[in-house]
Design a protein around this nucleic acid. Sequence first.
DNA 1: TCGCGGGTAAACCGATCGGTGTCATCCCCG
DNA 2: CGGGGATGACACCGATCGGTTTACCCGCGA
Lengths: 189, 189
Amino acid sequence: MIPDAKPTSRERLLEAAATLTYRDGVGIGVEALCKAAGVSKRSLYQLFESKDELLAASLKDGAAAFVAGLLPPADDDRGPRDRIMHVFAQLEAQARNPGFHGCRYLAAQIELKDQRHPASRVARRIKRNLLSFFRREAEQGGAADPDLLARQLLVVFDGASARAGIGVDDLKGLVVPTVTTLLDAAGVR
Amino acid sequence: MIPDAKPTSRERLLEAAATLTYRDGVGIGVEALCKAAGVSKRSLYQLFESKDELLAASLKDGAAAFVAGLLPPADDDRGPRDRIMHVFAQLEAQARNPGFHGCRYLAAQIELKDQRHPASRVARRIKRNLLSFFRREAEQGGAADPDLLARQLLVVFDGASARAGIGVDDLKGLVVPTVTTLLDAAGVR
DNA sequence: TCGCGGGTAAACCGATCGGTGTCATCCCCG
DNA sequence: CGGGGATGACACCGATCGGTTTACCCGCGA
């Protein structure tokens, strides 16, 4: 039911950038990106200022899918506890996928050491939104220290997805009990 | 009290590799490594098979310092709980250092996506040793599920050091209460 | 029919990549 | 003193980096 039989050059570039940088890292060459997208280098540099801006746009473009794949629907009638657990259940499910290589935003920030890199800024913003979600739910769940709980949850999220991403842990039986323990200790009902 | 006024070419290369790859990532060029070490490229390739082997050797070379900087002394008379807490207190202290950029072994594994890369193998082994330490202490502390607790602790370790390393959290008031909660829940005395 | 915008392919730019070949130099050991 | 192995300096290799330029092609509207 998608009217566009063929996506725009711009869309194909964003998609190729998302796929290849996730698999191979942000060090991937523009030549490879163009080939994968079926777009000439000439067009790339008409659509984007630079490779860095393409990377940033690609990360931003994927934010909606990132949120949709992790967060519960906004009209969810479950309580904060279940809504938080939902995120980690989703993470565990995604980690089962052989194509899973961890959180692309964390990876991007680690690979591009420069915090001021446009793509790094985008990644930081997106993760800050996840932190806000956790804090909001923690507050609503009556956590003793919502800020602390939100930071704890994000540490677990990043640690778990990183370790699963590099293939040293499958998260099975790990993430749910961990988050449960933290929620219990924080007094989230 | 160090007899070597001037370290070996090999030692200088290992040191330069450790410093520069930590700050700039494993993508750093061999030219830069050689210049920093004051060693010619020619010598580098007589001392090491390739850049990849130099990186691997450099990571392995730093393992002792990594352990010394985190783990409690072997003859420590404190209990398992304090010995585990020691690791995280050290991590939090190190994260205060402006030169801190997270766990170099996690970063290396994320940057080199290839799990079979020699440096990635070394990193994996070193972190497995940390996991073993956690499990040993968990067992000795009477944890209900020592394997689970060890995995939880490593997730917190990696998550916390990664987030501190990219500058989005200073770990203050975060890591100690988190580990305390996990130890309590596991029944570690 | 014309021109124009958006697209491609491909050559090209200087710089850098990992890695070698060549040769002079230096220092240690006999 | 004489010789040899380690080291440094440096040019060089083909490949690739991010980015630019040139030339051409094609469909659409005036």
